[in-house]
Design a protein around this nucleic acid. Structure first.
Lengths: 203, 203
DNA sequence: CCCTTTGTTGAATGATCGTTCAGTAGCATG
DNA sequence: CATGCTACTGAACGATCATTCAACAAAGGG
């Protein structure tokens, strides 16, 4: 048997950015399937169809990949703040976005749960969280301010933002671990009802 | 050197119930310190001061211990429902209990986060969760009903219970991963404000 | 004081973990 | 076609994982 000189390549080379994105996607799939315990080099690399050495090559370590994954999740959640071409979204648009099918589904919330469980005890991930969380809270507070001004209401936007974020995260959590007791519609209503006393009837 | 015939015992024997409780406490300490990744036989047995074989002996496996730990956490959260000698607590008493120092602290909420992250992907733990969650929701719904009747309000207690539980869990979550932005007082206020439109001013 | 019960030990096992690194090979460039 | 860069492979490493099990020993009853 003579080896063909132009046989199919053993693998394809990608740019660092492309391969990094592929590894992040593979990591997300592993988190969704098996939580943080399923987030192993073996699982991730099999999911991505690459060999075990690649995680270290593109990210410094498995923890580096996890940090990148955390950033990716936050960026996707923050997308709604940059989508608006005008002065920025109101709080109703944010609530609608956070409970849209792209965000409010079992896979995505399972990933969030796995990450949150790690944030509390992994210092590096804790710093990553703090960095993004401040931006997230500022975005929600800004949306609350815009809606309040439009309606002539006076509110403590920062405090209210923490409450809204807590409720959103709690609804994600319940939808993930007890999905039969929750719907996107009732979740949105819960948010609006909580905000009514401060901003008037929503949406 | 002659061995003393009545030297100090190498270890002490405990009843199965006592030793189980000790292993549960050790497991809780490990979860609080290192999340689900810190929940290893090595860590737990070192924390409890016993050898590695004991977890298998008293619980069928490490997963069995984790299920027992989940039950323990829920029982402690449900304690307030059984403490009241009368017809049961109102919703205000539950809110006060869930944000009391014994419950609303970083250690306890870190343990909850670690467990929630596992519930989503561990089927055995998922069943354990479902069993307790229904009792928990029923308890909260009962408290809401009692308060509503006393005030002559009409509410959908089950739906409202899910909202309240979501908000409580969300506030626990935020307090755990961003403790500098939250206090027990503001957390309680968030719950009361959400309930005001349904039940009138609380507490 | 012996004997039975059973809670407990700790070495051993095989699997899997994250990371390393010397070598391979895809692919753009000259 | 030859060269250089670097993405990539995959075997190997030592550490750690959960679990097993034969031997041990504490404590209570006879």
């Amino acid at each position: 048997m003579i080896a063909k000189p132009d046989a199919a390549p053993k693998y394809r080379r990608y740019s660092s950015a492309e391969r990094s994105a592929m590894l992040i996607d593979a990591g997300l799939a592993c988190l969704a399937r098996g939580g943080i315990l399923g987030f192993t080099t073996e699982n991730i690399c099999r999911e991505a169809g690459v060999s075990r050495g690649l995680i270290t090559h593109h990210f410094k370590s498995k923890d580096g990949l996890l940090a990148a994954i955390y950033s990716t999740m936050y960026e996707r959640s923050l997308a709604v703040f940059n989508a608006d071409p005008g002065s920025g979204p109101g709080i109703a648009e944010i609530v609608e976005a956070e409970f849209s099918p792209a965000v409010f589904n079992r896979e995505t919330t399972t990933i969030w749960l796995a990450l949150w469980g790690e944030v509390a005890t992994n210092p590096a991930l804790g710093r990553e969280h703090h960095r993004h969380y401040l931006a997230y809270r500022a975005g929600v507070a800004g949306a609350l301010k815009r809606t309040a001004e439009k309606r002539g209401c006076e509110i403590d936007a920062d405090t209210l933002a923490v409450m809204v974020i807590s409720l959103i995260d709690g609804l994600w959590l319940e939808n993930c671990i007890a999905p039969d007791l929750m719907s996107a519609e009732s979740a949105k209503m819960a948010c609006y009802r909580m905000l009514d006393p401060f901003l008037g009837p929503l949406p």
